[in-house]
Amino acid sequence: MAATSENERKTLNIKSKREGSGTVGAPKNIVYNTKDLNLWYGEGHALKNINLEIYENEVTAIIGPSGCGKSTYIKTLNRMVEMVPTVRISGEILYRNRNILDKNFKVEDLRTRVGMVFQKPNPFPKSIYENIAYGPKIHGIRSKKVLDEIVEKSLRGAAIWDEVKDRLNQNAYGLSGGQQQRLCIARCLAIEPDVILMDEPTSALDPISTLKVEELVQELKNDFSIIIVTHNMQQAARISDKTAFFLNGEVVEYEDTDIIFSNPSDKRTEDYITGRFG
């Protein structure tokens, strides 16, 4: 009973606050509009009635305890979740006003516009150059000159150019974990995406590498819309503009990050961010 009333309160809160913030500056463009999204793994109901609007050129953080559905949600945004054979999805996810769950929306097309950085750095066992050139090559770019430019631009964009410019032909596995992850970000930039999805990109990194990636995210949001799943609440507070708190497959609260962390409207959000569970 209490949960229901809390839910209602939450919905009202989100509505009023969002309208409020919308009137302050110029209205932001919506990149992703998720409507009544439900997702099942076999019988397990992993995402329940998700409704979220994600804005352009912002960093949107998704937080929540393990198993809350945050990784599932971000993988739904580029339909990577479909690699799980038992998955079933209902509802709509509008990316730039087109439903990506529509069978006519080719995943290859979607993933060219929406890049992804994974939890564990996953460079290919190829040279640094080949790692970056992979995306452009699969999309048909053959010119060595163009590829050279993309490689440099992407590596500069991921703030790793100076560290690797003298060894572009060496295997990417020779880089440190932090460098590998920035290489993966650069590889993602090379397909010139619109949105970058990051699934706990710093969870396998040491604090200094984490800091570098966080700084990079701040830089990148000028050109890209970034959605980042993180286990680390301080990280969400440091780098994101908006934060969604997931719990048991539901969005408990979605708000400007400073409001979530200073004045959450749901008791469960407060409990989570103050470390009472999770």
């Binding site: 580029n78 990577m80 690699m83 995943v107 290859e108 097309d109 979607l110 993933r111 060219t112 890049g115 992804m116 994974f118 564990k120 996953n122 460079p123 290919f124 066992p125 992979y134 995306g135 699969i138 999309h139 993966c184 590889r187 993602c188 397909i191």
Partner: peptide, 27 residues
Amino acid sequence: VPQFLREASYGMGATKWQTIKNVVLPA
């Protein structure tokens, strides 16, 4: 061949055949 290599390729919009040809088979 680790799944994360396939994911990296699919994540950039590669088709299944491109992923097999460029990532799975070489490995």
